[in-house]
Write a protein that binds this DNA or RNA. Sequence first.
DNA 1: TGCTAACATGAATCCTGAATCAGTTTCCCG
DNA 2: CGGGAAACTGATTCAGGATTCATGTTAGCA
Lengths: 211, 211
Amino acid sequence: MAPAVRAEAGSLTARGERTRSRLLAAGEEVFGQRGYHEASIADITQGAGVAQGTFYLYFDSKRDLMRAVVDERGHQLRATLAHATAAVVGRIGKEQAGFAAYFAWTARHRDLCRIVRQSEYVDADLYRDWYRQLADAYAAALRTAIDGGEIAEVDDVETLAYALMGIGDFVGMRWLIFDDRRTVPPRAVSTINKLVDRALSAESLPVRRGR
Amino acid sequence: MAPAVRAEAGSLTARGERTRSRLLAAGEEVFGQRGYHEASIADITQGAGVAQGTFYLYFDSKRDLMRAVVDERGHQLRATLAHATAAVVGRIGKEQAGFAAYFAWTARHRDLCRIVRQSEYVDADLYRDWYRQLADAYAAALRTAIDGGEIAEVDDVETLAYALMGIGDFVGMRWLIFDDRRTVPPRAVSTINKLVDRALSAESLPVRRGR
DNA sequence: TGCTAACATGAATCCTGAATCAGTTTCCCG
DNA sequence: CGGGAAACTGATTCAGGATTCATGTTAGCA
């Protein structure tokens, strides 16, 4: 295995830093466009405007670039979500803000969502960790909200976190990926906002009246 | 493009039929295990116990096999879900039965879920159609339930269908794929059952319009 | 039994593309 | 300046694997 001499961002000059981030961006684009396996190093280096050999100064392998892309963007996404919800008061409001931020991010990084799905077979841990890290942060926030009486108690917060992530992921996929829209239509947003509101609300429902 | 002479199941003798379905099963296994791109025709034919050349008597290409696998299993899944929910009365009960059936099916066809995710870059339509066909059937059922007053009205049934599918997909992924369990733990099941119950229930909550 | 179409074989072909490396250029510090 | 380290180059190497094909085998029907 190669020593990954210039792999860490810290030890790079400004010039090297620029080249590295160019490769990262080209990787995101090409992986997203053609798919991991169809993407050739030649495509990527061409996209970055460097020679093929240069690639291996910054990454050990194609797989290594994949990891770097997903890692990098994963941090960005989590930071974005944390920031978007931090400003809002009340869990239900935070949920809505979170979904909105997630959709906005997905629209901007359409490719990433598809790349993550691909990563399952490129590096299983990468795929798993993408969701786990999101879920862990989400579950912690939900736990706090439950303890504060803001939302209803559940049997398992982690499952709740995955369920809510699933809603966002699938609804985003439907409109932003399948329909290639730039935003999720308002009707869809209001549908899930109401859904989530009802699902999480702390008030216990009256027993359902006969139909 | 090859003429796919013996591609359709109809024109096959019993012997040919058996070989075809062996290849299909081997494909599901090998695609699931190694991933589409890592899976070689040699792996697949070996798994099916036939020679490499035989493969091309039944499928035009590796991609063609992928399509056949996803198609075949897709029909099975939809039939399974339809059957599981048909017996149950009441939409909320149907939901719970549907989730249970989906989890059971996922546990039995772990590989398929991962294969579908891969198919996004092998054949985009295949991927899309997998979810679309599930969603269409789901949305139709939900529409009926809404019109019957069984569940709350929503702004967009299709979005509701995707949201519910997302819940099933992610929760199934968490326990059956990530944790490699044979069943989703009861606490997780009860969590989403309650969640879905609250989310769909026809009673509208006291309006909590924040302003 | 013999004949034919369906079925099966697996070695050979041929292409693709990841990774390498011997050498060149750029940059900066003394 | 001048020298060395950091960047960069791109033709070449090399292995893997999808697909083909010339040939052999089976099974059912007349």
